[in-house]
């Protein structure tokens, strides 16, 4: 009964939105009844379909972890120099490069580069303040990072907390476009770092992880398109088109998933096989597109 009542209430509450779906009066009573029934079904279907959609990109920490496991090495020369931070004056530059520095911070933390982690946390803090994200990286976080610098797991958790603080604050402050730009900056830097660390398609583990970014790239596009009315977001959407073209040439095939669940341990395995097709020329195109895009952000 409650469920029925709820559905009725929800139906009526959104009926204003659905007014355009109402049909004109015509024909006999019988046909009117039939039309009403169809209308009702249609409206109820639409009401049921109104649901919140969330898009979750891989965080820079997760990407850095995956790359290390795939055989990536640490190369400090690849990081965006902290001296560049003073050049970032617009909100767009600050947001994208907060994402870039976040990815650098994550990469350094996974490879236990304590001093670099502190430097990049401090520069991230400055950009966060510039974006009115005062609570995202406060002094207590910097202090905790200093106190736990020799414990990689704690460092990773603290960095993860700063990401949570910044994207949750922005969403609750009704600034999801800025959150999307930060995530985009981090994602692009992750792709740049990965492609910079692999030259040949013969480096199978690394290449697999890089090609798999095509999956989350589609989510990045989806996320940015949600806010494409915003000029800064629209600009980035245009800038990433060469990366899209490069990914479009790459093929990922997967077979049907077999699900194995262990109720005792509350764990499920999704078993399936995937096949990746990429030529050296296609990889070179992707690598070049990633480099160009990333350099356009940090300049």
């Amino acid at each position: 009964m409650r469920k029925k009542l709820f559905r009725t209430a929800r139906f009526l509450a959104v009926s204003g939105v659905l007014i355009s779906f109402m049909s004109c009066n015509s024909g006999t009573n019988k046909s009117q009844d039939a039309e009403s029934a169809i209308d009702l079904q249609m409206k109820q279907k639409i009401v049921e379909d109104v649901k919140m959609v969330m898009i979750s990109l891989p965080s820079p920490v997760e990407t850095a972890m995956l790359l290390k496991r795939a055989g990536a090495t640490y190369n400090e020369a690849l990081l965006n120099p902290i001296s560049n931070a003073k050049k970032y004056n617009t909100d767009k530059q600050k947001a994208l490069n907060l994402g870039v520095y976040g990815a650098n911070l994550s990469y350094a933390s996974i490879f236990e580069q304590d001093a670099i982690v502190m430097q990049y946390m401090n520069v991230s803090k400055k950009l966060a303040i510039g974006l009115d994200l005062l609570t995202a990286i406060d002094q207590s976080i910097v202090d905790r990072l200093e106190a736990n610098h020799d414990d990689r797991d704690s460092v990773v958790r603290i960095i993860s907390e700063t990401f949570l603080n910044s994207n949750s604050t922005l969403k609750e402050d009704n600034r999801p476009e800025t959150a999307a730009l930060i995530l985009a900056g981090g994602w692009i830097e992750g792709l740049y770092l990965a492609t910079s660390l692999a030259d040949s398609v013969g480096q199978k583990s690394m290449i697999t992880r890089i090609v798999e970014q095509k999956l989350s790239f589609n989510e990045l596009i989806q996320l940015l398109e949600t806010y494409s009315d915003n000029k800064d977001v629209a600009d980035i959407l245009e800038s990433i088109s060469p990366v899209k073209a490069a990914f479009d040439n790459v093929e990922i095939k997967k077979e049907k998933v077999e699900v194995v669940t262990d109720v005792e341990t509350k764990k499920t395995d999704f078993k399936s096989v995937q096949k990746i097709n990429i030529s050296q020329a296609q990889y070179d195109e992707l690598k070049s597109a990633a480099l160009e895009l990333r350099n356009s952000i940090i300049q």
Partner: peptide
């Protein structure tokens, strides 16, 4: 486990639903 740092939360009422889209990686 370590939280991935991404904030996915919303307000919902009884009967309402939401969907989250995310790429999950192999052997993780």
């Amino acid at each position: 486990f370590v939280h991935d740092g991404i904030y996915n939360a919303t307000e919902l009422s009884e009967g309402e639903s939401a969907e989250l889209y995310k790429t999950f990686y192999s052997n993780q």
